[in-house]
Lab assay of single mutants.
Amino acid sequence: HNLTITQGKLFFHYNPKLCLSEIHKMEEVSGTKGRQERNDIALKTNGDQASCENELLKFSYIRTSFDKILLRWEPYWPPDFRDLLGFMLFYKEAPYQNVTEFDGQDACGSNSWTVVDIDPPLRSNDPKSQNHPGWLMRGLKPWTQYAIFVKTLVTFSDERRTYGAKSDIIYVQTDATNPSVPLDPISVSNSSSQIILKWKPPSDPNGNITHYLVFWERQAEDSELFELDYCLKGLKLPSRTWSPPFESEDSQKHNQSEYEDSAGECCSCPKTDSQILKELEESSFRKTFEDYLHNVVFVPRKTSSGTGAEDPRPSRKRRSLGDVGNVTVAVPTVAAFPNTSSTSVPTSPEEHRPFEKVVNKESLVISGLRHFTGYRIELQACNQDTPEERCSVAAYVSARTMPEAKADDIVGPVTHEIFENNVVHLMWQEPKEPNGLIVLYEVSYRRYGDEELHLCVSRKHFALERGCRLRGLSPGNYSVRIRATSLAGNGSWTEPTYFYVTDYLDVPSNIA
C-alpha cells in the first residue's frame, strides 16, 4: 500500500525493539523526510534493546553428524571492536523451508527459537588472519532439518551509529543413524509349514526405512522333555500350542467401542483428552525405555581390526524358502538304536541362519518350516543398504507352526516275539517326523474274553527296548493296539495285532 503524509511529521519514542533503520525507511515511504526535528525521533529510546544489523554474515563451514552440527561463519568486528559482546545463534526444527525470524513471537518477546549466546573469538592483530567464530550444536535429532541463523550482539553506541551483522536463515539436516526397533511384532501360524509375521514401523526411523531383515531359527525343545518319565503317576503330560491366527481386521481397528449394538453396526467412541494424553505418555515412556535398553543392555560386537582377528559373527547367506525346513542338525536320541526319531534339535552355532529381506511392506510369510516346531524370529529395521547396512537392534518374537495331521501315527506293522515265561516283546517304529517329539506310547492289549488293559511306555523305555515287553501273560489269544502321544496330543491307534500265548508248562520236552 502507498502511504503519503502531505502535512505533519513523524514522532517515535520509547520503541526499544524498533531499529532506527526501520524508522528511516518509514520517513522515505511516507514522504516526511526532512520535516522531523532532532528530538522527534529519539536516538536513545528507539532500538536500544534490539540488534540492528546492516551487514550480512556468511557461514564459512558446515559439518553434520547424526546428532551434531558444527558451524563456522566469517569474522565480524565493528569499528570499535570492544562493542562486540558476542553472537546469538538461533535454531529450531523446520520440516519445511518457510521459516521466518519472527515465527511464534508474542507480545512478551518470546519466540519459538532456541538461542545460544556465543563469546567472540580472540581478536588477531592481523586483519587478514582473524579467527572464524563458530559453535557445535549438540543433542539434535537424527535425520531432522533445522533452520539456523546467527547475528551479532553489540553494545549501545553513544554516537548512535547503527552497526551489526546478521546471516540469512539456512537449512541444515542432520545425518541418518540406526533406527529404533520395529514396533509390535506379531507372529502367527496359518499352516503346519508357515508363519505369518506382521509389525509396525519404528517410532524413530532416523532416516528413510529402506528394508527390513527377518531372521528365523528353529528352537530346540526343553531338555526336561527328553529326561522326564511322563508315565509316572502324578506327572502331567506336557503340551505345546501353536500360535493362533490373526483376529479379523475389524476387531483390530483402534479407537473402536468394545460393545456392539445388537441391531447392527455401531460407531466408534472418540477417545477423551485424558485417554489420548495417557497414550502419549505411555508411548514416550516406551521410547525412553527402549533407548535405555539399547544403550545399557546391548553391547556392540567388536569388529575385526587390522591384526587379522576374525569377526566372530557368522556370515549372512541367503537361502531359498524351500530350504528352511531342514535348518537344524538332527541327532538321534540314543545312538545305539537307529530307529528312534531325530527330534532332539541342538543347533550348531556355526550354522548360517536363513533370512529374508523385506522391502516396502511390514509383513512376511515364512514358508518351508517344520510342522509343530518353535521358531525364534528376529526382526531388524534398516535405513541404508549400501555401502553397508545400517540397521536397528533386533526385536524378537516366537511362534510355533501348526501340527501336521497323521504325523504322530505309527507307520509300519507292530511285530512281536514270544519268549519263555510268557513274555512277549512288542516292537514298532517311532514316527519319523512327529509333531514336536514323542513323549510316550500307549499300549492297549486284551486277552479274548477279558477286559482291555493299558500300559504306558516312556520315551526312554522305548529307546532301550525298541518297544516294550509284556510279562506274566496268561495263555490265550491276544490283540494289541499302540498309539503315540506327542507334544500336540495323541496320534491314531494302530491296526490290531494278534498273537497267541501258550502255557509254557505244557511245552513238550526233548528229553527222552
Results as ranks from 00 to 15, higher is better:
219 Q>F: 14
475 P>A: 10
449 G>C: 05
248 S>A: 11
300 P>N: 04
221 E>T: 04
379 L>S: 02
271 K>V: 03
475 P>K: 07
383 N>K: 02
381 A>W: 01
320 S>P: 08
463 A>Y: 04
435 N>F: 01
243 S>P: 10
401 T>M: 02
455 L>T: 12
410 I>L: 11
253 K>P: 15
250 D>N: 15
374 G>S: 06
421 N>D: 15
317 K>P: 06
288 T>M: 13
357 K>L: 14
388 E>D: 12
206 N>T: 05
311 D>M: 10
389 E>S: 10
235 L>Q: 06
222 D>A: 05
271 K>L: 10
450 D>V: 15
315 S>T: 12
450 D>K: 13
209 I>E: 06
256 Q>L: 08
388 E>V: 10
356 E>V: 15
290 E>D: 15
288 T>S: 10
293 L>Q: 15
479 S>Y: 09
498 Y>S: 13
252 Q>W: 11
246 F>S: 12
424 V>T: 08
254 H>S: 15
234 G>W: 07
207 G>K: 02
361 K>P: 11
340 T>N: 14
286 R>Y: 08
216 W>V: 09
245 P>V: 10
323 D>F: 15
507 V>L: 02
438 I>C: 06
207 G>R: 02
390 R>Y: 12
218 R>K: 07
361 K>A: 08
442 E>P: 00
221 E>P: 04
487 L>P: 08
211 H>S: 02
323 D>R: 14
479 S>F: 09
408 D>G: 02
214 V>L: 07
350 E>V: 15
346 P>V: 11
217 E>F: 04
461 H>R: 10
264 G>D: 09
345 V>N: 11
344 S>Q: 10
326 N>H: 04
284 S>N: 07
409 D>V: 05
337 F>K: 06
486 S>L: 00
247 E>K: 09
274 S>Y: 10
282 E>W: 07
349 P>C: 02
508 P>R: 11
282 E>I: 05
246 F>H: 07
219 Q>Y: 15
368 G>R: 11
303 T>F: 08
208 N>K: 15
221 E>R: 14
501 V>N: 03
219 Q>N: 11
460 K>I: 09
345 V>C: 12
297 V>T: 08
220 A>P: 10
377 I>Q: 02
260 E>C: 11
369 L>T: 11
345 V>I: 15
369 L>C: 08
318 R>T: 09
343 T>R: 09
407 A>M: 13
488 A>Q: 03
224 E>Q: 07
301 R>P: 01
302 K>E: 14
366 I>F: 13
280 L>I: 08
290 E>G: 11
500 Y>I: 12
230 Y>H: 03
434 P>G: 04
450 D>Q: 11
301 R>M: 07
276 I>S: 10
503 D>E: 10
225 L>C: 04
213 L>P: 02
319 R>H: 14
337 F>A: 04
407 A>W: 07
230 Y>L: 11
499 F>G: 00
412 G>L: 10
286 R>V: 11
436 G>W: 05
450 D>P: 03
243 S>H: 10
413 P>T: 00
265 E>W: 12
483 R>V: 02
257 S>H: 04
218 R>L: 14
229 D>W: 10
335 A>R: 12
334 V>W: 07
492 S>R: 08
375 Y>V: 13
242 W>F: 12
434 P>I: 08
318 R>I: 15
397 V>K: 11
231 C>P: 02
436 G>T: 08
408 D>L: 04
432 K>E: 15
225 L>H: 06
454 H>R: 03
429 Q>E: 15
314 P>V: 09
215 F>Y: 05
214 V>P: 00
437 L>A: 11
345 V>H: 08
260 E>F: 11
227 E>C: 13
431 P>T: 03
346 P>I: 15
472 G>I: 07
239 S>D: 11
460 K>N: 09
325 G>T: 13
358 V>Q: 11
345 V>P: 11
437 L>D: 13
349 P>S: 08
303 T>A: 05
434 P>H: 08
497 T>L: 12
509 S>R: 06
466 R>H: 12
458 S>P: 03
505 L>N: 07
402 M>N: 11
334 V>N: 07
231 C>V: 01
432 K>C: 11
261 D>S: 09
292 Y>A: 05
265 E>I: 03
393 V>M: 06
277 L>C: 03
222 D>E: 08
462 F>A: 07
248 S>V: 07
407 A>I: 04
320 S>I: 10
365 V>W: 06
329 V>M: 07
353 R>K: 10
481 R>P: 00
255 N>S: 10
204 D>S: 05
390 R>Q: 11
209 I>Y: 05
396 Y>E: 08
478 Y>W: 08
452 E>T: 05
484 A>I: 14
375 Y>R: 00
502 T>Y: 15
225 L>E: 06
420 E>S: 05
316 R>C: 01
439 V>A: 13
